[in-house]
Amino acid sequence: MATGGRRGAAAAPLLVAVAALLLGAAGHLYPGEVCPGMDIRNNLTRLHELENCSVIEGHLQILLMFKTRPEDFRDLSFPKLIMITDYLLLFRVYGLESLKDLFPNLTVIRGSRLFFNYALVIFEMVHLKELGLYNLMNITRGSVRIEKNNELCYLATIDWSRILDSVEDNYIVLNKDDNEECGDICPGTAKGKTNCPATVINGQFVERCWTHSHCQKVCPTICKSHGCTAEGLCCHSECLGNCSQPDDPTKCVACRNFYLDGRCVETCPPPYYHFQDWRCVNFSFCQDLHHKCKNSRRQGCHQYVIHNNKCIPECPSGYTMNSSNLLCTPCLGPCPKVCHLLEGEKTIDSVTSAQELRGCTVINGSLIINIRGGNNLAAELEANLGLIEEISGYLKIRRSYALVSLSFFRKLRLIRGETLEIGNYSFYALDNQNLRQLWDWSKHNLTITQGKLFFHYNPKLCLSEIHKMEEVSGTKGRQERNDIALKTNGDQASCENELLKFSYIRTSFDKI
C-alpha cells in the first residue's frame, strides 16, 4: 500500500482533458527560462521544448504516446526543470519506465491550478516501474492521483506527508504495488545497510526511497516546507523545498512566496507586481503582455491589467481597466465587458449561442446573426445582446428569417469595421425574408467608422429604411451602385405612401 494514499474509496472516473512563447529569463536562482504550460502528445517531438525550461508557468501534460519505446527515452533528460506552477499529468506514455532521468531536479509542483483537485496525476502508464522524482520536495496545493499503472512499484516507500501538507485526498490505487509483488529495495538494503531515512506512518517504520538508488530526502521537522541542505541544516524561511546553503534567500532552489532578481522575498516591493503567484514583474512586463494579447485571437491570451499590486489576466467583477495605466478602477454604474472572439468572429444561430455573449459591452471581433427560429426570440436576444455598444469588426445579418427588427441591439452605437466582410463591408444584410426595420432612427444613433453597407434580398425592408441608415451611420456616399439592390429590397412591402385627393359631386333626387 502506498504510504499516505487512500484505498478502496469510491472515486469519480478520471477524465483526461485534452506555445513556446518565453516569458522571460528567471535569473540567477533558476538555471534556465520560464516556459508556458505545455500539452505534449502523440510523439516526442515537442518534448524537446523543455530543454531550457527551469519553470513551467502553467501545467505540463505528457500523454497518448503509443509508439514510443524505452530506448526512445534513454537520452532524454531535462535537468534544468525545477518547478511547475500548476500540475504534472502523465497518461498512456508507452515505453517510459521512470522519471528519474527525465526530470531529475523537479523540486516543486505548486498546484496553482489543479487537474480535478490533483497536482500530480500518473494514470495508465503501462510501462512505468517507478516514479523516480527523487528531488520532489513540495506539492504546495492539491493532491496526488496514481492509478492503474500495472508495473509501478516504489510507492509504499514514499512518505507523501513530507511532500504535501495533507495526504487525506491522495488516491493511489490499482498499481502493481497493490499486489505486494514489488519487493522494493532501498539503497544499501541488499548489503544489509540502512542508507535512507525511515519514518513512521500508520504504525509502520519504513525506509523512504524513490528507487533502488535514490533515497527520499527527509528534512528535520523544524525546517517545515522550506527544505534543508545535504547536511540537514534548514533553508531560509522564504525558500521552498530545498537550498544549497542554509538561511540564505539567494540560495533557495525555489521560493515559498515570490522570486525577485535572484532572491526569494515575502512580497513584491514597489515598483514590482505579483505575477502568477510566484514571481515579481515590473510595469513594462505587464504592459507588454497586455499589448501582445490586445489584437491576438490565441486562446488563453489575456490583456493583463494591474489590481491590488498584482498583474492579473482581467479586472475583477465591479472594476474596469483604465487604459492609460492598466489599473483596475471601480465602475460607475454597470461595468464594461470586452469579449474577445477566439477566431475573430462568432455566429449567433440560437439563443444558446447568444447567451455566451451575455453582459458583453464591447465585441472584439465580428458578429454573424443567422437565426431561423426560436421561442420568445426578441426578448431572449435583447437579454443577451442588448448591452453590446461596440463591435470592432463587422455585423452580418444573414438568412435570419425569424427577425423582424434589429432593435434587440438596443445599445449598439459603434461598428468600427477594423475587419470587413469580403474585404469591403462593415454591415452586411443578406436574404432576411421578414426583416422590416433596422432601428427606430428617431431614437437610435449608430456610427460606422469604416467599410460599406450591403443589402440584398431583404424583400420587406424598404429602401427608405436603408437610406436612413446611410445618413445616420455616416456611410452615405461610400456605397457603390450594386451594394444596395434596388429590386430585391422592399419588393414585397408597401414602401411608397402617396396622399390621394378626392373630389365629389353631391346629387339628390331633384338636383344634379
Score class of each variant (00 low, 15 high):
K310S: 05
H226L: 13
L260A: 07
R279L: 13
M65I: 04
K193G: 14
I40Q: 02
D177R: 10
C223K: 02
Y272G: 01
P334N: 07
S143W: 09
K251Y: 14
L233H: 12
D277K: 11
E130K: 09
D72H: 03
P249R: 01
Q299P: 14
Q276C: 03
N175I: 10
E238W: 04
E49I: 13
E33S: 14
H59F: 04
C286A: 01
C286L: 01
V265C: 02
L155W: 11
R46Q: 04
A156L: 04
Y30R: 02
I306C: 02
P316F: 02
A190Y: 14
N202W: 08
K67N: 06
C219A: 06
F115M: 04
L131Q: 02
G37L: 05
V108T: 12
I222V: 07
Y259S: 03
L326P: 01
M125Y: 00
S77K: 05
H236W: 01
I109N: 00
Y273W: 05
N257G: 05
R162Y: 10
I82L: 08
G58M: 00
S324A: 15
I82P: 00
G203S: 09
L60T: 02
L289F: 10
N135I: 00
C35S: 00
C286H: 00
C255Y: 01
K224S: 10
I82V: 06
I122A: 08
F283Y: 08
L88P: 00
L327W: 03
C255G: 00
P336D: 07
H48T: 08
A254K: 03
Y154A: 10
D159L: 03
E147R: 01
D75G: 03
C243K: 00
P70C: 06
I158R: 06
E207L: 10
C182M: 14
C335P: 07
A119W: 01
R113I: 10
S225P: 12
P79A: 05
L164I: 10
E314M: 06
I222S: 10
H212D: 15
A198S: 10
L260S: 02
E314F: 01
W160A: 02
E231G: 15
H302E: 08
A230W: 10
C293K: 03
F103D: 00
C286T: 00
Q276H: 02
S317L: 07
S323N: 03
V34G: 09
P187R: 05
I84P: 01
D261A: 02
N195R: 09
H59E: 03
I84A: 00
L326N: 13
T157E: 14
L174K: 15
N42E: 14
R297C: 05
N282T: 07
P316M: 03
V55S: 02
L174F: 05
N43S: 06
A156E: 03
S324H: 10
E51V: 09
G111A: 03
C239K: 00
R110L: 09
Q276P: 02
R279Q: 15
K191F: 14
P246A: 14
L155A: 08
V34T: 08
H302K: 01
C35W: 01
N138L: 11
P249H: 01
N309P: 02
L88M: 08
S317T: 13
P334Q: 10
P36D: 01
N52L: 04
D159H: 13
P336Q: 05
Q276K: 08
F116H: 04
K191N: 10
C239Y: 00
A119H: 00
S54Q: 11
E180A: 11
C331V: 14
V218S: 10
P70S: 05
E147V: 10
T85K: 05
F283P: 10
L89F: 07
K100L: 10
K80C: 05
H59K: 04
R46Y: 05
G318V: 02
C328R: 01
D75W: 05
S112F: 04
V34K: 10
N42C: 08
L89M: 15
E57Q: 13
D101T: 12
D86T: 02
T199Q: 10
L131V: 07
S143G: 07
L289H: 07
C239T: 01
N195T: 11
